[in-house]
Design a protein around this nucleic acid. Structure first.
Lengths: 104, 104
DNA sequence: AATTTATGCAACTTTTTGGTTGCGTAATAA
DNA sequence: TTATTACGCAACCAAAAAGTTGCATAAATT
């Protein structure tokens, strides 16, 4: 997941598809300054990570934003942040208790 | 950022440091099945991404969790999710309007 | 003082990744 | 029908990443 979004080109594509409009491979490669094949590869990686979905429309291959994995990534980051927060709290209360014990 | 968390080893280290305890390089390499040097490199990458902070304690080099960039990543994902949501809403209201116009 | 422990630096090897080129094919348009 | 357009597949290339090894150094132990 993070690896898939780690590449700037892929992140740009993903970001662009977040407006909900599915786009064909050629459409997406028009703005990217690289070959259609390169874009195709990136799309496959994004698809492999579940960040994007593919469906054919006539002869065109359309890629669409896929929110599930994004949600999962957010949940993970929230969970990590939560662990960090509670660790901070534990440290804080520990220091406070220490002060209480040491003051009289 | 995403690139830094994209590597499984680095994600594991980052995840582990989320408990708030800074750890030395050797401590961190004990659990990883690879050389200390490899772990060092990964830590440098994490540090470069601002996900982790380094400070020396005697001769030991301790790495600690750093929440700022994590927060930023969460904000970005939230923003993307927000764009997607509002795109969905627009599509929904469009369909509803279309129905309203077409029904009588 | 001698030894161990924790690290840094640098060179090197091996995979992986990002990207291109060339060719073949199927659907669309002229 | 003949181009044209939108793809897929496969081979290839170059650069970056992941990891190792060897050596040097400085702090902590004994």
């Amino acid at each position: 997941m993070f690896a898939a979004l780690g590449d700037p080109t892929r992140l740009a594509i993903f970001d662009r598809l977040a407006d909900g409009r599915p786009r064909s491979i050629s459409t997406l490669s028009d703005d990217a300054d690289m070959t259609r094949q390169a874009v195709t590869k990136h799309l496959r990686v994004l698809e492999g990570a579940g960040l994007v979905q593919n469906h054919k429309v006539g002869r065109e291959s359309h890629y669409a934003f896929c929110p599930e994995q994004l949600a999962q990534a957010r949940e993970y980051l929230d969970q990590v942040a939560g662990r960090w927060e509670s660790a901070l709290m534990r440290l804080k209360t520990f220091v406070e208790e220490d002060n209480t014990l040491g003051s009289p």
